[in-house]
Design a protein around this nucleic acid. Structure first.
Lengths: 210, 210
DNA sequence: GTGCAATTGCACGCCGGTGTGCAATCCGCG
DNA sequence: CGCGGATTGCACACCGGCGTGCAATTGCAC
């Protein structure tokens, strides 16, 4: 509570948190010992600051989420924080940009939301598919059919994750399984700069029959 | 090798694989015991079919990836399997759709690529942010500013994952950190049906100054 | 019904990680 | 210098999961 109490003591706490952040990025399953060593400290010391591993991670996540929320402007009770008359697209863009500012700082932690041993294995094995997609994307970009501020490889990452996201949405009952495929395709196309009309027409035509 | 050998023996193997698939979805860290019980079998029996947990999962992933690759048409050596003159957008859409067909069947396993205890905690805590985004999206959809075949909640999922993907792309050096924020924003906007021009203009204007 | 493979039940040993207890330092502040 | 909180080193006990060995048992298939 009293910030005046011990000076270098909680400076150490800070340091441990910082180290834990980057260490957990490298390996989300990093043990307390790994974290401690990385922080140039003994495991026992970490427990002196955080009662458990869960508490440590919790502190980390809390900090990130707090910053994230603050940036996005999810203020207390006010349901309508945004000027009602404003352009939704602009508001949306603002929101994304604002969140990004913070998210970028917490990139490491946010990325912790990815990768597991298992996951990594899958991603690795998906590399050939991704390569194929990159080729396709690059060609489209070269020919001007696609438009994107992201380089093809990064875009491939994004598309891969988009599909995963839609899959999960279906799993959670947020989207209709029957329509999810085409819907996902349209969405991915649009994210690559294809107009909504053309994307819809294209997918409608292609998904109409096998 | 010889499929004639034991009939119900490897039918059991199949059953174990199927069960493992859905069980690992529920919990990617499911123990061998959990999987075995779910399959109505004793742990020891599973080891009779798969020498290790890793082997089991590997088999699972191999199957999925194989089907996935086959669907996408990542054929042997032929670098140019696609007709060179064809429309990249169409080819791209075809690819996504084809992959989707299989991915949807393996939805459960693919979803295994998500969620961990840690991850789930993060996602849960991100719920308020997501809710805010959903509101914004819904408004945009109602006003016709956004266009999407996906319902707002699903779209929110997608956008969240898109951002994570870009973050990871940056981590992996596939995208420039300085430009990633605006680039991600543009991409997300486009995925919501905003034209490339308007998205670029909008983000350019908004990100020009803090 | 008998034979033979598959399955079972149970017992290990091993490993790695967690959280705790306690005495022995360390080290900066006053 | 000396006090006192912080840190260290080491020793535990505990847990859960993995992989294996082996003898007993089940239950199709013939």
């Amino acid at each position: 509570m009293t910030p005046s109490s011990s000076s270098r003591a909680d400076a150490n706490r800070r340091h441990i948190l910082d180290t834990a952040l980057s260490e957990l990025l490298r390996d989300p399953d990093a043990s307390m010992d790994q974290i401690a060593r990385a922080a140039g400290v003994v495991r026992r010391t970490v427990y002196g600051h955080f009662p458990s591993r869960e508490a440590l991670i919790s502190t980390l996540v809390d900090g990130a989420v707090e910053a994230l929320s603050e940036a996005d402007g999810v203020w207390s009770g006010t349901e309508e924080g945004d000027p009602a008359g404003s352009d939704p697209a602009e508001a949306f863009a603002r929101s994304v940009l604002a969140v990004w500012e913070v998210a970028d700082r917490y990139r490491l932690l946010v990325a912790l939301a990815q990768r597991t041993v298992t996951v990594q294995g899958i991603r690795d094995r998906l590399a050939p598919l991704r390569a194929h997609k990159v080729r396709l994307l690059q060609r489209g970009l070269d020919e001007g059919v696609f438009t994107s501020p992201l380089p093809a490889p990064a875009l491939a990452y994004v598309h891969e994750q988009m599909l995963f996201a839609v899959l999960e949405a279906v799993n959670d009952g947020l989207a209709d399984a029957a329509e999810a495929g085409p819907a996902a395709t349209v969405t991915v196309l649009m994210s690559a700069g294809v107009s909504a009309g053309r994307a819809a027409e294209l997918v409608g035509r292609l998904s109409g029959r096998g």
